[in-house]
């Protein structure tokens, strides 16, 4: 690094971009980890059904499998849009 580089404006380093991207993708992949193979498809089909009635985004349906003392719990989370957005539909 020479003396001139101190005078230039700092831009975000590529390493910090890498870190941010990794944190997001790893968190996403962990949420579906260990679940059955049909989960992604189940999620897609549920999204299509919900969209028949309510306009929701890609991330609106969240499917997760949790294990508790020998029993599996399928957790479904559907985030509906705000009232205003619904009225326009």
């Amino acid at each position: 690094m020479s003396i001139f580089s101190y005078l230039l404006p700092k831009k975000q380093s590529s390493a910090s971009v890498a870190k941010e991207r990794l944190q997001i993708i790893v968190a996403r992949e962990r949420s579906t980890r260990g679940g059955p193979d049909y989960l992604p498809q189940l999620q897609q089909e549920l999204l299509m059904v919900v969209r028949k009635y309510v306009p929701v985004g890609e991330d609106a349906v969240n499917v997760q499998v949790d294990r508790e003392s020998g029993c599996e719990i399928l957790e479904l989370n559907i985030t509906l849009p705000e009232e205003e957005a619904q009225q326009h539909y």
Binding site: S13, S14, A15, K19
Partner: peptide, 16 residues
């Protein structure tokens, strides 16, 4: 390369 911001640091990788 870590110091110049071109490579993920040990701490970054460990945190992830």
């Amino acid at each position: 390369r870590v110091e110049s911001g071109q490579m993920l640091s040990v701490e970054d990788v460990q945190e992830i």
